[in-house]
Amino acid sequence: MIEFDNLVLSYPGGARRALDHVSLSIPSGAFVALVGASGSGKTSLLKTINRLIDPTSGVVRVDGEDVSRVPAPDLRRRIGYAFQGVGLFPHMSVAENIAVTPRLLGWPGPEIDARVRELLELVDLPQDFSARAPAMLSGGQQQRVGVARALAARPSVMLMDEPFGALDPLTRDTLGDAYRALHDKLGLTTIMVTHDIQEAVLLADRIIVMEAGKPIADGGPRTLLRPDADPRVAAMMDVPRRQAARVQAMLGAADV
């Protein structure tokens, strides 16, 4: 359960608020996509959850606990975080990257080793990758390691900031599906920022559309795809539908 209560984020000298009185509630087990244009506040909202950004006012609660009362490093060790830049530590092996949070938490060595093996399997990477340097992996493999690292300490909440944005479409699709399966298998609560409406529609149970620091629409993909939605939302949601229709048309033409 993640709650945002009247969240405001403004920067000194900033003309408008990055987050403008946001109140939302996300139940455990949900897969939520945050979508919106650049500067709409979707990434800022995500980062208030693990305190990479502290709001100007308002409260964020994770499982009922006000996150501002938890030391940020402790909070982050309990919450998985994967982002577009991946940020694997280049001076550490794949295994060391995955093991980093359990090590910070002081897990015993054998338990960490077992967890690393388990995670490599979970993200579908061969065990002999554990000794490799991150630079030797492809982009998709790197993000698999990134997801494994985020999951290492068994968090119940995963924050993902355009995690597959830099990957080629095929890899993006594969990884998206694989992650959705992990989400279901592990019973995670996932909040994913994406600018890709299609990805949001295909992966998430619930889509929150952000604009100018506020949610302007919030609902299941089907609800938002209905033509009677807010015109801004409809325009945005229309993109995947039109693309799908065009692809369909071309495929149909090719069949003839």
């Binding site: 693990n50 990479l52 490093p73 402790d74 909070l75 982050r76 060790r77 309990r78 975080y81 982002f83 830049g85 991946v86 940020g87 694997l88 530590f89 280049p90 001076h91 980093v100 949070t101 910070l104 990134g146 690292r149 985020a150």
Partner: peptide, 26 residues
């Protein structure tokens, strides 16, 4: 790399841990 520094924060390193384990070696 800024992404690496952000990752160090994201996995729950304190500023000192980030400096000693990640930034200084790099």
């Amino acid at each position: 790399d800024r992404a690496v520094v952000e990752a160090a924060k994201g996995v729950g390193m304190t500023p000192a841990q980030s400096l000693l384990k990640v930034e200084a070696p790099l």
